[in-house]
Simulated scan of single mutants.
Amino acid sequence: MSALLEVEGVHAGYGPVNVLEDISLEVGEGQTVALLGANGAGKTTTLRAISGMLKPRGRIRIAGHDVTGRATERIVKLGVAHVPEGRGTFAPLTVEENLRLGAYARRNGGPDLERAFTLFPRLGERRHQRAGTLSGGEQQMLAIARALMLQPRLMLLDEPSLGLAPNLTRELFKVLRQVKEDEGTAMLVVEQNANLVLEFADAAHVLETGRIVLSGTADEVSADESMRKAYLGY
Rank of each mutant, 00 (worst) to 15 (best):
L156M: 14
S2E: 15
G216I: 11
Q139F: 14
A63E: 13
G64W: 02
D202Q: 03
V33E: 08
N18G: 09
L123A: 13
G136S: 15
P84N: 14
Q139I: 15
L162M: 14
G9D: 09
V33C: 01
A143N: 04
L101N: 04
G69A: 02
Y14L: 11
A204C: 06
L156K: 01
L168E: 07
R228P: 04
D22Y: 02
L196W: 07
A218C: 11
V27M: 05
Q129L: 08
L5C: 07
A131M: 15
S161Q: 05
E29N: 14
T185S: 06
L232V: 11
T133Y: 12
P121G: 07
S135V: 15
P92Q: 14
E225R: 15
G13P: 00
Y104Q: 06
K174S: 09
L198H: 05
D66P: 01
L20F: 12
E96I: 05
G86K: 14
P16H: 08
L196F: 07
V19W: 08
T209A: 15
E183Y: 12
V27Y: 07
R115Q: 05
M187C: 09
V83Y: 12
G110T: 04
A81F: 09
I23R: 10
A230Q: 10
A203I: 01
G30Y: 10
L188F: 03
A230C: 06
D202S: 07
N108E: 11
V83D: 04
A63Y: 05
A143W: 01
L198P: 01
H128V: 09
G233K: 04
R177F: 00
L93T: 09
T217I: 07
S51G: 01
D66S: 03
T89P: 10
T46R: 05
F200K: 02
E220N: 14
L172W: 00
A41D: 10
E159A: 08
F120Q: 00
E114V: 00
M187D: 07
I144G: 02
E220Q: 15
Q31T: 11
L123P: 01
V206E: 01
E220V: 10
L162C: 07
R146A: 12
V175E: 10
L214R: 12
G132W: 15
S215K: 13
T44N: 05
E29K: 13
T169L: 04
P84T: 10
T68M: 04
D66M: 03
G109R: 00
L47T: 01
Y231G: 03
G88R: 15
T217E: 13
Y104P: 02
V27T: 10
V213T: 14
L123N: 03
P84V: 08
R100M: 07
N108C: 05
D22S: 10
V206R: 00
A105D: 03
G109A: 03
L134W: 15
A49I: 05
G58D: 02
E171P: 06
G86R: 11
K77G: 10
